[in-house]
């Protein structure tokens, strides 16, 4: 320990987005380590994607005698309703896991008692959130692949391979927009003890307003208008259309532009809310309380 100062000083000089990314990566690995330390979580991880889809498929099969639905084809141009629902719920899995997984990050740290310690490290305040977002993208992304793969094998869902590229771009845009929501969620749970209720509301509303398992056309007109303000609404259609129709998916460019615009708004608002909340919590000295 003779070169004490220099080791710390060397670390001090490592700044910038690359060091933030490394910290974020460490956070995502840490969450994997913790998740995998629970014996059942691997089972859950494999089963989860199907546990969303199967009740949906069962419910659909109660109102449709075959694989094709004339009314769905009228509204969306896709007549194979299982494909429609399977792709939609795969995306929903990713969104829900991001919203709950990432949004509740700080609350979980608070619960296990590590939040204050984390906040004494030089990692950027927003990195804690998107670092865990990184984990949830890995986690949720694997889930999407798993579910789509199984849907193809079990339900005979077909996917246009070229569509994977625009679909990935859509997911990227979607995840960025969701970060805005996640910042807001993180702020809520940091402040309010009953925050999960609001989160449940927010999450369920986002899902309700998005064409994940049904086209927006079946929503009441007022809700249809509200849906236009959610990146998830644009993203869900664009994602599915890409995977079904490939590069020639209708309205792809328009959806992506809309998402870009909405992402900017969501990120800005979410970021400001988070920063403000963080300040407030620090002035209250309430980081460790819940």
């Amino acid at each position: 320990m003779d070169n004490d100062e220099s080791f710390n000083e060397r670390l001090m000089s490592r700044r910038g987005w690359r060091s933030e990314f490394r910290a974020a990566w460490a956070l995502s690995i840490k969450t994997w380590q913790i998740e995998l330390s629970y014996p059942l979580s691997i089972l859950w991880f494999i089963l989860m994607p199907f546990l969303w889809l199967i009740p949906m498929v069962l419910a659909g099969s109660a109102v449709s005698s075959g694989a094709n639905s004339a009314s769905l084809a009228d509204m969306t141009g896709i007549s194979d309703w299982i494909t429609y629902v399977a792709i939609g719920t795969a995306l929903m899995g990713l969104i829900i896991s991001t919203l709950w997984g990432t949004g509740m990050t700080l609350r979980r740290e608070q619960n296990v008692g590590t939040l204050e310690t984390l906040f004494t490290t030089p990692v950027g305040r927003t990195t804690f959130i998107w670092g865990n977002g990184l984990h949830n993208i890995q986690h949720g992304g694997l889930g999407v692949i798993l579910q789509l793969g199984a849907s193809i094998l079990i339900f005979g869902v077909t996917i246009n391979a070229w569509g994977i590229f625009p679909a990935l771009a859509v997911v990227a845009l979607l995840v960025i927009g969701m970060q805005g929501v996640v910042y807001a969620v993180a702020s809520i749970v940091l402040v309010a003890k009953q925050g999960w209720m609001l989160v449940e509301f927010l999450g369920s509303t986002l899902v309700l307003l998005a064409p994940l398992s049904y086209p927006l056309a079946v929503l009441p007109p007022l809700l249809q208008m509200a849906a236009a303000g959610s990146p998830l609404s644009w993203g869900a259609d664009a994602f599915r259309n890409s995977l079904v129709f490939g590069l020639a998916a209708p309205g792809l460019i328009q959806s992506m532009l809309m998402m870009l615009l909405l992402d900017a708004v969501y990120l800005l608002v979410g970021g400001i809310v988070y920063k403000t909340t963080h300040r407030w919590v620090r002035s209250r000295g309430a980081l460790a309380q819940f």
Partner: peptide, 20 residues
Amino acid sequence: SIYWKLSARENLVFFGRLYR
């Protein structure tokens, strides 16, 4: 203030990474 689900070494390495 450490993760009980991680080992001693994992804890230290993780926090080390956060300190760059």
